[in-house]
Nucleic acid binder design. Structure first.
Length: 890
RNA sequence: GGGCGGGUAGCUCAGUUGGGAGAGCAUCGGCCUUACAAGCCGAGGGUCACAGGUUCAAGCCCUGUUCCGCCUACCA
């Protein structure tokens, strides 16, 4: 048996073996219908272009913990996996490949290009899935979906048409964010704002026919070419006389009016505002109110249009320089100030975004947002940690219409057709044969595709077969919990809420658990350019999957980011190894199946560890039920390493070796079996591989640990009762052992030197306890002799430690110099004095004694007494020691 | 500009109704004690950011200050 288990745990073979076993054996599969309660999670679908990063690793680990835990608790668990087509990202990747091969996608044509993307997806699209499997993800892979597969595409069309018919989708000309590199519209959310050190340019616009006029201030002077008015605040006395006049727009010499609008902030800049309706969202609004024309001077490619006159064809930033130069030459550039301001960038390619007038499709989100808001307010969906609810509310309350059309090829093409003959717009799930208006057969489908997040918004029900009324939906919708990072709370979570409530008439999930971001050890965001990325696959290669999972779990405290370093993972790798070795040791002594057994007539350590096991089992489930993953991991770490390994295994070694008779040997074997058995189950959700491996060596544990019963539900474990007496008694024995070890350590006595110890106490029950359990003390404190006596003369030549009402004397005659012990006692007494001082202050405070609850006062009194007793004993011993020293000296 | 989170041991962080300041790592000392040196046994180390306030009692509640991080926004 021993030879089967290597000295150090080697994860790689084990992981591969068990993952294949689980997947082939259908251990992840969730039946459509089942008697057990349903528990469902839909995976946040990673981009098909994605490579696994630590964010995924954390996200997947937490979901896997929940799923494996719920399975152990007896639920029918569905973890729905899949990937997202990631429109712009994927198109960019494939385009880059084509460019490298010298091909332009426009040469290729739309159809051929899309074919290429599907090919790419077929070749590389499963990479991310395979990486998730390396993490141990127990998804029901049979059900894997893709946002562009047939079923999901059907759902997308259905939703689009329904929303259009309900008046919640419309098309219109608005200012949108335009990425000139991706050549597509972007939703507000897809724009990242960055603080830029820019300039505020003051430009004079002469009143027509004069050479003087209002000065406007702008950060984007090139847009002046498209100005169609100058606006001032109607209250602004400086400009009263100008309203209604026209100015001569420099460089173009177009005559544009001076208008009054309360929108203008009198205190900013010069108080005069240039109005460019085609290139600024606010100007667009002002322009609409005042019926101003819009002149588009920056084209979709970021170059100036014909309307920009002589600047036509210039890149927008080149044009800015040219415009400034020309204005300066004419003496119209009055002032240039430094000015920091936010500049929008494309979240995919980081190009500076240009506000642009464009015809796009929008979702009117107001009515949808109201429902989504209400569902969280009334608790149908709970966001954990709660603090995110505020962000959620605020965003939904101020939500603007959602621009859903994108000018790219990869994605769900908008199901809208225009009749070339009569111009009639037809929105339908399938391509219409002819125009219902004029019966024309030449119908052009809108070339745009939908925002990727449009299909993701349907994910919780589209993956389960909607719009068909499937058994799967019936069993698993609403899902139990959504686990995700806060970065997509608005992109995705809020939109799923809206769509779920609108089309399913119920929330998509009962809980939303928002987890932290994984950062590097200094708290910086991991990024390729910074070079501080810790790659999960490298870590797995080095330390094993379980070590990575345990690390992430142990640090997944609510509301705080995780700072990760290899060092930490190494530490938890050691924990896995510790568990492995504890099991290895256990199997040297436990060779039988002790599943069904009674727990009577146990030794103190056995009773104690069973109590601890029960407590930890309850704590574990309570922690997972409330998403306190770090508490679960840390409790288990503490229990396994320090209580089970450091204390329990050491305490029962003599029994296991048969030194205490057959009866105690066997009961310790039984208890050891049970503790190991239950501990493996408790650990399994966090570290699935090592626990499965050990499980199969545990005598009598048949089948996979995935099918085991959680300890708190297991009848055999339910028989274990709490044993507060054992906890108290064991605590005392442990304190005695620690006290003696302490002396050994401080006095620098070699561990191989067996010591003689004498305990004095007047407490009969304590005497009994110590005598009955003296072998544990002798063994773990390495003693040559141990005896308990009534309190009396302190023996000569000893070092002393006090535990409760017992004075423990370690004979040191001839071993050490007593000045060391005197120094140690002085230090100890000083510590106690400090404690007593603190307590004195409290007890001498009438306010405390009168107002604090009786129990608290009593507790403080007891504590005070305890310290006082201890001090008295130690001080007495110190005195004796000193007289002894002076005696030997003289 | 608005909002949110954080500041606890050298480092990274727990601290769940306010009631004797904790863990891991690092450091120091001692151990090859037959499961594990990826280990064992000990030790040292904190004005809980700062200043006030409430309370018998504050790491925890309130106010202000300061530093760091994030989200968000239409001052051109």
């Amino acid at each position: 048996m021993e030879s089967m288990l290597s000295k150090g745990y080697e994860p790689h073979e084990v992981e591969k073996k068990w993952y294949e076993h689980w997947e082939a054996g259908g251990f992840f599969a969730a039946p459509d219908q089942d008697d057990r309660p349903g528990y469902a999670i839909v995976i946040p679908p990673p981009n098909v272009t994605g490579v696994l990063h630590m964010g995924h690793a954390l996200n997947i680990t937490l979901q896997d913990i929940l799923c494996r835990y719920r399975r152990l608790r007896g639920d029918n668990v569905l973890w729905m996996p899949g990937t997202d087509h990631a429109g712009i990202a994927t198109q960019n990747v494939v385009e880059r490949d084509l460019t490298a091969a010298g091909i332009d996608r426009h040469q290729l044509g739309r159809e051929k290009f899309i074919e290429k993307v599907w090919e790419w997806r077929k070749t590389y699209g499963s990479a991310i899935i395979n990486q998730l499997k390396k993490l141990g993800a127990s998804c029901d892979w049979q059900r894997e979906r893709f946002t562009m597969d047939e079923g999901l595409s059907r759902a997308v069309k259905k939703v689009f048409v329904a929303l259009y018919e309900q008046g919640l989708i419309f098309r219109g000309n608005y200012i949108i964010n335009w990425c000139p590199r991706c050549m597509t519209a972007l939703a507000d959310l897809e724009v990242e704002h960055e603080e830029h050190e820019g300039h505020l340019y003051h430009i004079m616009y002469p009143i027509s026919g004069t050479d003087n006029g209002p000065v406007v201030a702008t950060t984007r002077p090139e847009t002046m070419l498209g100005d169609t008015a100058v606006a001032v605040n109607p209250e602004d006395e400086r400009y009263q006389n100008l309203v209604g006049k026209t100015v001569d727009l420099p460089l173009t010499h177009r005559q544009i009016p001076v208008i009054a609008d309360a929108y203008v902030d009198m205190t900013f800049g010069t108080g005069a505002l240039k109005i460019t309706p085609a290139h600024d969202p606010n100007d667009f609004e002002v322009g609409r109110v005042h019926n101003l024309p819009s002149i588009k001077v920056i084209g979709d490619d970021g170059k100036m249009t014909a309307d920009a006159g002589k600047y036509k064809g210039l890149d927008r930033f080149e044009c800015r320089k040219a415009v400034l130069k020309d204005l300066d030459a004419q003496g119209l550039l009055v002032k240039v100030e430094s000015h920091d301001h936010g500049v929008g960038h494309c979240y995919r390619c980081h190009t500076v975004v240009e506000p642009n007038l464009s015809r796009q499709w929008f979702v009117k989100v107001g009515p949808l947002a109201e429902k989504a808001l209400a569902a969280v307010q009334d608790g149908r969906t709970r966001i954990v940690p709660e603090k995110w609810e505020n962000d959620y509310y605020k965003w939904l309350e101020n939500i603007r219409d959602w621009c859903i059309s994108r000018q790219i090829w990869w994605g769900h093409q908008i199901p809208a057709w225009t009749c070339t003959a009569c111009g009639r717009l037809i929105v339908a799930e399938e391509a219409p044969a002819r125009c219902p208006e004029c019966s024309g057969t030449e119908l052009m489908q809108d070339p745009d595709v939908l925002d990727t997040w449009f299909s993701s918004a349907l994910w919780p029900f589209s993956t389960m077969g909607w719009p068909d009324n499937t058994p799967l939906l019936k069993t698993f919708y609403p899902t139990s919990v959504l686990v995700t990072g806060f970065d997509i709370l608005f992109f995705w979570v809020a939109r799923m809420m809206m769509m779920g409530l609108h089309f399913m008439d119920d929330v998509p999930f009962h809980d939303v658990y928002i987890h932290a971001l994984v950062r590097d050890e200094h708290g910086k965001k991991m990024s390729k350019s910074t070079g501080n990325v810790i790659d999960p696959l490298t870590v797995i290669e080095k330390f094993g999957t379980d070590a990575l999972r345990f690390t992430l779990t142990a640090f997944a405290a609510q509301g705080r980011d995780i700072k990760l370093s290899e060092k930490r993972i190494e530490g938890y790798r050691n924990f896995i190894n510790k568990l492995w070795n504890a099991a290895r040791f256990s199997f040297m002594h436990v060779k039988e199946d002790y599943r069904n057994t009674d727990f009577s007539g146990l030794s103190l350590p056995d009773r104690w560890i069973l109590d601890r096991l029960k407590t930890v089992s309850q704590n574990m489930s309570a922690a997972i039920d409330t998403y306190r993953f770090n508490d679960a991991a840390n409790d288990l770490y503490q229990f396994v390493w320090h209580e089970f390994c450091d204390w329990y295994l050491e305490l029962i070694k003599p029994a296991l070796y048969g030194n205490k008779g057959e009866a105690e040997q066997q009961s310790s074997q039984k208890v050891l079996w049970r503790v190991l058995h239950d501990t493996l189950i408790l650990l399994h959700p966090i570290v699935p591989f090592v626990t499965e491996e050990i499980w199969h060596i545990l005598p009598g544990a048949d089948g996979s640990i995935m099918r085991a019963t959680f300890p708190t539900d297991d009848p055999a474990s339910k028989d274990i009762s709490f044993d507060p007496d054992a906890v108290r008694d064991m605590g005392l024995i442990m304190a005695v052992i620690t006290g003696i070890r302490n002396i050994r350590g401080e006095m620098n006595i070699a561990p191989s030197k067996a010591l003689e110890v004498m305990v004095q106490t007047l407490d009969d029950s304590l005497t009994g306890l110590l005598e009955q359990n003296q072998e544990f003390i002798i063994d773990l404190a390495r003693l040559a002799a141990f005896s308990v006596h009534p309190m009396g003369e302190k023996p000569k030549g000893t070092a002393t430690v006090i535990v409760e009402d017992a004075v423990i004397s370690v004979f040191l005659e001839g071993i050490i110099d007593f000045s060391q012990e005197a120094a140690r006692l002085e230090k100890e007494i000083a510590k106690i004095d400090a404690e007593i001082d603190k307590l004195d202050k409290k007890l001498n405070n009438p306010g405390f004694v009168n107002k604090a609850p009786d129990a608290v006062v009593a507790k403080v009194r007891d504590l005070h007494q305890e310290f006082a007793d201890k001090k008295l004993k130690l001080a007495g011993n110190l005195e004796k020691l000193q007289s002894l020293q002076s005696g030997t000296q003289s």
